[in-house]
Design a protein around this nucleic acid. Structure first.
Lengths: 145, 145, 145, 145
DNA sequence: GTGGTCTAGACCACC
DNA sequence: GTGGTCTAGACCACC
């Protein structure tokens, strides 16, 4: 599976699962209508208590991301993509703002912050082809309907 | 005092105090040799149980940031500044990296991230106008209207 | 359990617990991966407030001796043995040096100190007869009567 | 003065003073009838709160070590030497036994302990001429009467 | 069930 | 006055 769980993180495991399901939908790894691994299957795969998986699925269901198929499991709702893109964007924006607010409250300058940001981008960017332009088009979701 | 506690944060109160003491040292608000408010005084000022303050002070002591003067109170160690600058930088870098890692794992592009970063900087930067140059002098409010 | 707490000691109870956990790891009573008694269980067994136990466990955690398994309890870290052997040796060496420094500062001679040391060894050594040779094999109870 | 105070020690400062006065008497640095520095003088010399000095002198007086001369200060009682030698010996013996008990409770062997003891002796012995004989005469106090 | 946080309040030694 | 320890008990999230 595509889950990577950090047992030591301060973020509860069920939250990590919720987030990773949403992000997988946001980036297209999981598409509408697709089936999720069963609670039992997944609990074996990633060695977690089934209760923890079940809790994550339950919350994703109540957030209208997943839909239960009676007796068969959970599928991704056809209309889940927008909610997942929004969730992703909100989370990322909140993270960035929190990091900046922390930095300013400790007296750091925006110059130092830009350096840190660019360095982190260099280190982490998946397709490492870094360009200096900050005017690239904003992205937008390709329509694959 | 300079403390601002968020009772509803997921971050424990004693951790908020620890962080704010370190950041106050990092930005020069608290200098080496300076006295901290007493446990009882601070507990009155920010309406917290003295045990909570004492716990924060105790951890700062074991991290070599504060030093107790027996029967008199807590002072900032002369050599605390470096540790506090390091702590601040590490925290900010970790925050930024976590935000970026999250974003990439959700399929966001570095272009989108730069926009989010610059927007957050605009919103949060304390009393400073934004210019696009990253070599601009560190202070000043140039009018680019 | 293997804890023996002295309520009247000048050493705080939580420090006694910390020391005894480390020493139990050092002498092999507690091995890496092994589970500790839960805070509530131990607080019942040795008639102490759970907060006191929790404080000891918390500090052992921050010293990388124990590791919390969320919702399940505390285990001894696999790599804790070295740290515990070091802690034990450092403590013993510090104790011995402090005793000797005190003695010398009061004008005592090394001859007097050797007598005191050998007498204390005779009195305290667990189930072992004393011989004058310091190269004797490490176990066994030779009868030198 | 002959005092060396460790502000950070777990041992209270007034206890350090008491011990150092007794040990100075035990090793002959302070003789019966000799005058101690006044509370004010000493508090200036070693930069301590006069209350702390006064408390130490008060306890030494109640232990029959010092005697107040009205309006002039404290002198060492003529019969203080025996009490001071006893106090020194008891303290050293207690220290040594405590160190050994700690060591055994952590699974250390008497062989290891002898090594530690001899090493500490080598490091600390004031007139570093170390001999291997452990049968030296026990010392005894020279009579200078 | 588990540990973690927080409040409330007692008591202590030290200055 | 100062910080440090300890008890008692509530409440929380997680498993």
């Amino acid at each position: 599976m595509f889950f990577s769980i950090d047992q030591n993180s301060a973020i509860p495991i069920y939250e990590q699962i919720i987030r990773q399901v949403k992000f997988a939908i946001a980036d297209g790894t999981l598409a509408g209508g697709q089936m999720l691994p069963s609670v039992r299957q997944l609990s074996r795969d990633i060695a977690l208590n089934p209760n923890t998986i079940a809790r994550a699925y339950r919350e994703l269901q109540s957030q209208q991301i997943l839909k239960p198929l009676r007796g068969r499991g959970m599928i991704v709702r056809r209309d889940a993509l927008d909610a997942c893109l929004d969730a992703r964007n909100e989370l990322v924006i909140a993270n960035v703002r929190a990091a900046l607010a922390d930095a300013f409250s400790g007296g750091m300058s925006s110059g130092q912050l830009r350096e840190i940001f660019e360095q982190a981008l260099l280190d982490l960017e998946p397709n490492a082809a870094h360009t200096n332009s900050s005017q690239r088009p904003s992205g937008g979701e390709p329509s694959d309907e």
